[in-house]
Simulated assay, not measured.
Amino acid sequence: MNTAIKLGGFGAGLAAVFTAALGLGSAFPVSTPATPTPAAHSDPTGTEPARNTAAAQPPAGLQISQDGYRLTLLNSSLPAGVPQPFRFQITGPDERPVTDYVTSHDKDLHLIVVRRDLSGFQHLHPQRAADGTWSTSLTVPAAGQYRIFADFQPAGHEGLTLGADVPAAGDYQPTPLPATARTVTVDGYTVTLTVDLTPGGSSPLTLSVSKAGRLATDLQPYLGAYGHLVVLRDGDLAYLHVHPDGSPGDGRTTAGPKIAFHTEVPSAGAYRLYLDFQHDGKVRTAEFTAVTATPDSALTPTSATPGPSRHGTDGHTHD
């Protein structure tokens, strides 16, 4: 995906920068703006063009347009709990729909959908028509305001993540942010996260996957990696996409049980982490809450259940 991260340890150095400061309340954080800097996106292959990090940019996903490119939603609303064709376009500086993209992680565009309370996460891959219109079937689980992220790289340009909101009418019942946790379960799998999200420094994240007490050492590549991690900041939903150190077939990356990441989180606050991994032919999503703190208190080892989402036959959606 295309929100700037560099892979540390493999020559591309993983760094994804969120810059708006996020203050913590007694239970959940409240956003406090700060001077923005650009986010970063990983490139395990080293084939993506270099990013211009000098120009000040807001965190990824907070803008509906950037550098002349614009996300235009063709749905004004969504019905809750009902499959709905969802259509949108990316228009370029010439105000025409973009039809020429650089493939990143096996796809020309990645679509992330999540409710504003960080529940109902979905990672989709729409189809593009000849006229540049993207479409997919989308079911949002409940009423509320949903954030749509389009993560893509137009030909001749660096990668972008644009965001827009779409409502689902009904009785909105917000879901509290789940407690911080080092271990979650999803579809019979146990995923353990070691993380210290320390503002202003590099945070190593290692996730270990097991099932029925046995470590999973045969994870399967999904979109060219053994794991994909999307991180959203609570409050403003600033977007960060992270990929693991190394890639399948590079001679040094194993197929589990551990998936290693590095990312830089300079702003304080709470974050929701969504890990996609594939095993036995199915993609699952493990969800975590992490709060920035000093290294010895970043997470409290409690258990949590991932929020509602859709993904193929196991209850989550990955198209």
Results as ranks from 00 to 15, higher is better:
Leu177Phe: 05
Thr305Glu: 14
Asp94Leu: 06
Arg182Lys: 15
Thr206Val: 15
Val30Lys: 13
Ile64Asn: 05
Gly307Val: 04
Thr103Lys: 14
Ala50Gln: 11
Arg87Asp: 09
Arg214Gly: 03
Thr136Gln: 09
Val231His: 03
Leu22Phe: 07
Ala255Tyr: 10
Leu177His: 03
Arg272Gln: 07
Pro257Lys: 08
Phe86Tyr: 04
Ile64Leu: 13
Ala142Met: 10
Ser309Cys: 07
Asp106Leu: 14
Ala16His: 08
Ala80Cys: 06
Asp131Phe: 06
Thr254Ser: 14
Thr53Phe: 15
Tyr239Leu: 06
Glu264Tyr: 12
Gly92Ile: 05
Thr302Lys: 10
Phe288Leu: 06
Asp250Ile: 12
Leu275Cys: 08
Pro221Trp: 03
Val82Glu: 11
Gly159Phe: 01
Tyr271Met: 06
Thr185Met: 13
Ala39Asp: 11
Ser137Trp: 09
Ile5Thr: 08
Pro126Ser: 10
Arg252Asp: 06
Pro44Lys: 09
His279Ile: 10
Gly307Asp: 06
Gln89His: 12
Gly132Lys: 05
Gly13Pro: 04
Pro29Arg: 03
Gly256Ser: 10
Gln89Gly: 09
Ala39Gln: 07
Leu22Asp: 00
Thr313Tyr: 12
Ile148Glu: 02
Tyr172Trp: 13
Phe121Trp: 07
Gly269Tyr: 02
Gly235Tyr: 00
Ala16Lys: 10
Ser303Gln: 15
Ala50Pro: 01
Tyr239Val: 03
Val114Glu: 04
Lys282Asn: 13
Pro49Ile: 15
Val184Tyr: 07
Gln63Pro: 03
Tyr222Glu: 00
Ala270Phe: 02
Phe18Thr: 01
Gly235Val: 02
Thr53His: 05
Gly144Tyr: 01
Ser309Leu: 05
Thr91Ser: 15
Thr194Cys: 09
Ala155Leu: 13
Thr133Tyr: 11
Gly25Tyr: 05
Phe152Glu: 02
Asp131Val: 07
Gln153Lys: 10
Thr99Val: 11
Pro266Leu: 03
Asp131Cys: 11
Leu78Pro: 00
Ala4Trp: 01
Leu219Phe: 11
Gly11Ile: 13
Thr300Asn: 11
Gly132Val: 06
Gln153Val: 02
Arg272Ser: 04
Asp236Phe: 05
Asp234Asn: 12
Gly315Tyr: 03
Gly156Met: 14
His125Phe: 09
Leu193His: 01
Asn2Pro: 11
Pro244Glu: 08
Ala238Lys: 00
Ile5Gln: 03
Ala169Gly: 12
Pro257Ser: 10
Asp106His: 13
Tyr271Thr: 02
Gly132Ile: 05
Leu215Phe: 15
Asp165Val: 15
Leu197Ala: 15
Ala225His: 01
Ala168Pro: 01
Ala80Pro: 01
Thr19Asn: 10
Glu95Phe: 06
Val195Asp: 02
Ala12His: 00
Ser202Lys: 08
Ser202Ala: 14
Asp236Cys: 07
Arg310Trp: 11
Ala293Asn: 14
Gly227Trp: 02
Gly68Tyr: 09
Thr37Trp: 08
Asn75Gln: 08
Ser309Arg: 03
Thr32Pro: 00
Gly170Ile: 10
Val102Cys: 06
Phe121Cys: 01
Ile148Asp: 01
His243Lys: 13
Leu229Ala: 04
Phe152Asn: 02
Asp131Tyr: 06
Gln84Asp: 13
Thr99Phe: 02
Leu71Val: 07
Thr133Ile: 13
Thr3His: 09
Asp171Gly: 08
Asn52Phe: 14
Gly315Ile: 03
Asn2Phe: 02
Asn75Asp: 10
